[in-house]
Amino acid sequence: MATTEVALKTVTLQEFKGKVDPDWCPGCGDFGVLAALQKALVELQIQPYNVVTISGIGCSSNLPGYVSTYGMHTLHGRALAVATGVKMANHDLTVVVTGGDGDGFGIGGNHFIHTMRRNVDLLYLAMDNQIYGLTTGQVSPTSRLGMKTKSTPFGSVEGPINPISLALAAGATFIARGFSGDQKHLTDLIKQGIEHKGFSFIDVFSPCVTYNHDNTYPWFKQRVKKLEDDKTYDPSNWLMACERSQIWGEEIPIGKFFERTDLLSLDQAEPVLDSGGPLALRELGIPAEITREFVTELM
């Protein structure tokens, strides 16, 4: 039982500040995502040492170095697989995964789909800038058809994927889209995503001011429209969410597309975790009467 002798200290924003300042380009959308994440963690009063921030590789994947939680800066595309292991080994931890569109939807696409299917209880923040930034500007899985980049100098002939529709199809239980330019809205979505028990996906428009001259702050600002402002929208309605996810043009919906709370998350569904606390903190030995059975069945 928790002791009441020492009142828990209030968690402040300062405690989430990392050891070094971000090395992102001035004006990068990722600053806004970092700030919103820190604010959300403070508002939820989660202790920094109970959070693990996990990323792959890319500009946005540098984020774990800029928060003072536990962090893992892993391999390109692999953050969700690593994060699943972290969460299963210690399901008391709050796990936040960050990364870019290339990392998550390109090289990491397979893990993206399967982590949603498994309903692993974590927050996945994709900082979607529709470009490969760290490699100096190549086409990404979310770049628009016809976009001119260094690897598509005459315009891309491939269409983009739609992360929201993909997440709906793959069975994610919390799906939202945010915009780095709208802090308050994004912070609120992140809070909801962390509090959701299950896989929470937030596709965040996070403009690349250096390499993407198509999808800029003004471009998004003119178009984004909050689902929350539409009183007829029901985020528990999967079909409605599918329909809205297809809207892309002069108007682009942001906000919570979908949430369901009737499915167990992987740690809830896994009987090994029913009792005994986090796996990582359990004693290593197996009771002798059980190991005797293991041998007896071989005889």
Partner: peptide, 30 residues
Amino acid sequence: RQAGIMVRQVEDEIGVINMAIGAAQSGCRA
């Protein structure tokens, strides 16, 4: 279940090693 081991079948071997490393990083023998 008898041994108290979490067992996962993963989507590919890339996911396998990364998931195992994640669990190991959290403190499990993986």
